[in-house]
Simulated assay, not measured.
Amino acid sequence: MFAKLLSIASLAILAAATPTPGGGGSGSGDCSTGPIQCCDTVEKASDPAAADILASIGVVVQDVDALVGLTCSPVTVVGVGSSGSCDANAVCCEDNSHGGLISIGCVPVTL
């Protein structure tokens, strides 16, 4: 029963992190969970660099295959000069609450 609940919760999290078409239509660069993030790297939570950071801040990610972004900053304006570009990895993440160090539950997006 717990496994079914965890599976359903995981699917809900992925659905919540899915970017809205066109950034929500407003051009603001928002996904359904907040601003699109530009991350230096995107890795699985089980990869050593991500796992070390997660452990150091005491975050446990249930899905070791979940994508996490490392060293992230929000992309605030899409399509306007260089401030709306991302030369690294543009992602929409479920949890951006770790000060840009790491964002959890990411889905790649195209700017």
Rank of each mutant, 00 (worst) to 15 (best):
P19V: 08
S103H: 14
K4H: 08
G79E: 05
G105C: 01
V59Y: 07
C38V: 13
D52V: 15
S83R: 14
S82N: 06
K44P: 02
G99P: 05
H98P: 02
V59D: 02
L101D: 06
G84V: 03
P21R: 09
I102T: 06
V59C: 07
C31T: 02
T71C: 00
S82M: 09
K44A: 06
K44E: 04
S56T: 12
C106Q: 04
T71K: 13
A66G: 02
P108Y: 09
V59A: 06
G99E: 08
C39A: 02
G34R: 01
C106S: 03
Q62E: 14
P35E: 03
S103V: 15
V77M: 06
C72H: 08
L67H: 11
S73W: 15
S82C: 08
C86M: 00
V61Q: 05
V91W: 07
S28A: 15
F2T: 11
F2D: 07
I53E: 06
I8A: 08
A15K: 11
I104V: 10
T76P: 00
V78N: 03
S83Q: 10
A12G: 09
C92L: 13
N96F: 04
A12F: 14
A55E: 07
N96C: 06
E43D: 14
L54F: 01
Q37T: 01
V68N: 03
G100E: 01
T41M: 11
A9H: 05
G105R: 00
D87W: 12
L70F: 02
A66N: 08
D47T: 12
C39H: 00
A55W: 04
G25A: 06
L6M: 11
G84I: 00
K44M: 09
S83K: 13
G22I: 06
S46R: 14
I102W: 08
V59T: 11
V64D: 06
P74C: 01
S82F: 10
C93R: 01
A50P: 03
D47S: 13
A3D: 03
S10V: 15
E43W: 15
N89G: 05
C31S: 10
N89W: 12
P48L: 01
A49F: 02
I13Y: 00
G58V: 02
S56D: 10
L54H: 09
P74E: 00
A51C: 00
I53K: 10
G105P: 02
G23S: 12
F2Y: 11
N96E: 10
P19E: 04
V78Y: 08
S32T: 14
D95P: 00
A3E: 06
I53G: 01
G100T: 05
S103W: 04
S97Y: 15
D63Y: 12
D65Y: 14
D87H: 12
D87E: 13
I102H: 04
P48D: 07
A45V: 10
A49Q: 09
D47M: 12
T41D: 05
A49M: 14
S82W: 08
E43R: 15
L11P: 00
C38R: 06
T33F: 00
S32P: 03
A66F: 03
G22Y: 02
G100V: 12
N96G: 07
G34I: 03
V78T: 09
N89Y: 10
D63E: 12
V75C: 03
C39R: 05
A88G: 04
C92N: 05
